[in-house]
């Protein structure tokens, strides 16, 4: 049986699971809800009800959303032919956990405290084992090449106190791993998607670095290899205003979307708009798989859609807690 044929059942099930997605009217009602309790009550009428009942406190919605995502990952993992496909999305959580743990180590060393409350169970590697290995400095048991990378990160921090450099090294490793997995899976569309994500991440990093007045040479070290856009060309944009980025990136797949971002707004607003565009763009990149009844990318598309849905719900609930502006919220919601 070819790899594609093996996904016939999985894609059909995914397609049926898509009926559980929240529709726009539910999100609209949540935005218009008076307070957090009302928004959660609306959410309780949807497929999130089981996640909601397992969490008693209204303020605990982050854990509830993590529970919902975890349940989806577990469900999808139970029926897809190759579990490695999920790693393309779960590595970001693994590396998030590693960053949290390493920063906790740094914090403790400087008299601060551990922030294990930021850890997530969504990664592919068990969090407890990760904590244990890093706390006991048993790095040799760590996966993803972290056995060498973590001592290197600690050594860099001890010498320079440069947390950005540590994050850069970890992100580099993460994207290299994602590319490796996509290559091993022998799914060209997945590899292409990862390369697009690397480019997107590079553009996002560049805009953030521009905000902090980084120069091209320093910015280059923050670019991840393996994308489709030449990193040398990208960093040369850092000295130019955002409006000229549109012209320079016109020939890339991001061209049309980047052009739609208003370059006259503040940096933080621009970064938010770019992040929204990128999240939507990654989903659009997988959209063509919808016409195939057995394309493995359908699994990625479903999971990314779910991730964006959870992101939307989180944004609404946070806005309800902090009294955020409804119009601003509507503008930033992902198109799912």
């Amino acid at each position: 049986m070819s790899q594609q044929d093996a996904y016939g059942y999985a894609v059909a099930r995914i397609r049926a699971m898509e009926n559980r997605f929240l529709d726009a009217s539910v999100l609209q009602r949540m935005i218009d809800a008076e307070d957090l309790a009302t928004a959660l009550k609306i959410l309780g009428e949807t497929s999130y009800s089981s996640a909601l009942t397992s969490h008693v406190s209204d303020q605990d919605f982050d854990k509830m959303l993590e529970f919902e995502l975890q349940a989806i990952y577990k469900e999808v993992e139970s029926f897809i032919p190759n579990k490695k496909l999920l790693d393309l999305l779960r590595y970001q959580y693994d590396f998030h956990n590693v960053k949290v743990l390493i920063k906790s180590v740094f914090n403790v060393a400087t008299g601060g405290e551990k922030r294990w409350d930021f850890l997530t169970s969504l990664g592919s590697y068990p969090v407890d084992t990760l904590i244990n290995d890093i706390e006991l400095e048993e790095y040799k048991f760590l996966p993803f090449g972290l056995n060498n990378l973590i001592p290197e990160c600690i050594s860099i921090w001890e010498q320079s106190r440069d947390v950005l450099e540590v994050e850069r090294l970890l992100d580099n490793r993460m994207y290299a791993l994602m590319k490796e997995i996509a290559f091993d899976l022998d799914i060209p569309e997945a590899l292409n998607w990862i390369r697009t994500r690397i480019d997107g991440e590079n553009i996002r990093s560049l805009l953030r670095l521009k905000r902090f007045n980084f120069d091209a040479t320093r910015a280059l070290s923050f670019m991840h290899c393996g994308g489709k856009i030449d990193t040398g060309m990208l960093v040369s944009l850092i000295v130019e205003p955002f409006e000229s980025w549109k012209r320079s990136l016109e020939f890339t797949e991001f061209g049309k979307g980047i052009s739609s971002i208003d370059g006259t707004v503040s940096f933080s607003e621009m970064i938010l708009l770019l992040e929204k565009f990128l999240d939507d763009f990654y989903l659009d990149k997988l959209a063509s798989s919808r016409f195939s009844s057995n394309a493995p990318e359908n699994i990625l598309a479903y999971l990314w859609h779910k991730e964006m849905e959870v992101k939307n719900v989180r944004m609404i609930l946070v806005a309800k807690t902090s009294g955020g502006d409804k119009e601003q919220l509507r503008r930033l919601l992902r198109n799912v």
Binding site: D5, Y9, A12, R13, A16, N19, S293
Partner: peptide, 17 residues
């Protein structure tokens, strides 16, 4: 067999189909 795989996938979620 091919159609069956799809049917099984859909019916796992919604047996009424």
């Amino acid at each position: 067999g091919i159609a069956n795989e799809a049917a099984a996938g859909v019916m796992t979620e919604d047996p009424s189909k």
